[in-house]
Simulated assay, not measured.
Amino acid sequence: MKVVVIVPTYNERSNIGPLVEALDQQFATLAHDMHILVVDDNSPDGTAAEVRALQTRFPRLHLIEGRKAGLGAAYVRGMNHAMDALGADVVFEMDADFSHRPEDLPRLMAEIDRGADFVIGSRYVKGGSIPANWGLMRRLNSLGGNIVARYVAGIYRVRDCTAGFRAIRCAVLRGIDFSRLRVQGYAFQVALLHAAVTNGARVVEIPVDFIDRTRGESKLGFADIMEFVWNAWWIRLQSSRVFIKFALVGLSGVAVNLGAFAAFLALGMNKFVASPLAIEVSIVSNFLLNNYWTFRWRKTRDRVRVKGLKFNVVSLVALGVSFSTFAAVSSLYPALPPWVPQLAGIPPAMLVNYFLNSYWTFRHADAS
């Protein structure tokens, strides 16, 4: 196979020479046609000139240049060039600053050889690590980004969604329309991963030690963080069939809830008795629809009766949230028609139901 290691650079002159030499040493251990593609964003420190000088010693070193537009834009240029001009079968994403150890490259490649489509050098699986000297804010930034990616964007099966050390089959990349990812900065990593997972790529994570750079400066800025968060929510709203299905089930539950409540009132029940009964009827209805439609595709570890038991626990929590809301609104505004406080209790109960059922009752077996 022809493999191209893509290295985006901006002001990495001091790092690029040692990195090329280290990668070339690793290439000697692999039975593949290995290449390096540096994608330089017109670095003012002369990074591109350094690469051109290195090309006289390393014939499998390639260079393309372009304006600075963000990490994602650089990777798109690099991936297109690797596939179209170099004929790559596999591409690597790798930082230029030795945050990713060249010695780990053969381990990622071995997983591709075993049949994986998308291999992640992961900091957050057993055996992986982040620097021990990271401060609280740096740790929260990294962990928070992964929480957003996993539970907002919906890539919950992957532990390290923001990792920048990855090996990807070009067959996977050719099935992705880069223009639809709508991102240019660091959010590209999550957008690309989500697109690959959605298209059915087999993702494998292997543990790596993330190393802090010793030369140069980090390029991550506030604008990148904001783009990342916005993109995660965009992915959730635009691409998550589970979220859309759950919302539709929730709407049907509103009708069931209010219909049952009206029926119980018509039978002469006290509104404080009719409310929890109507809530329970709607919860059961929602569970059946979610179990056999919304989450049907998930391969859960639990049998139906265990899921049913978990669901009942969630139902009690949701019932308490909804009834508490109903009681509070009824007490604060006793003149309101009974259906108004009943309706007010539905949204918070729905949110509780979604998060607890999605990430506990119907949790995918591969999630961890």
Rank of each mutant, 00 (worst) to 15 (best):
R13T: 14
S14P: 11
S14G: 13
S14E: 14
N15S: 08
I16G: 02
I16V: 08
G17P: 04
G17N: 08
G17W: 00
P18W: 01
P18D: 00
V20I: 06
V20N: 00
A22M: 05
A22C: 09
L23Q: 01
L23H: 00
D24F: 10
D24A: 12
D24W: 08
D24E: 15
Q25W: 08
Q26T: 10
Q26Y: 07
Q26I: 06
F27P: 04
F27L: 04
F27W: 05
A28R: 09
A28H: 07
A28K: 11
L30R: 12
L30A: 15
L30P: 13
L30I: 15
A31D: 14
H32I: 11
D33R: 07
D33H: 10
D33Y: 06
D33T: 10
M34A: 10
H35T: 05
H35Y: 04
H35C: 05
H35A: 11
I36G: 00
L37N: 05
V38I: 11
V38Y: 00
V38T: 03
V39I: 09
D40A: 05
D41I: 09
N42A: 13
N42P: 11
N42F: 12
S43P: 08
S43H: 07
S43T: 08
P44L: 05
P44Y: 03
P44M: 04
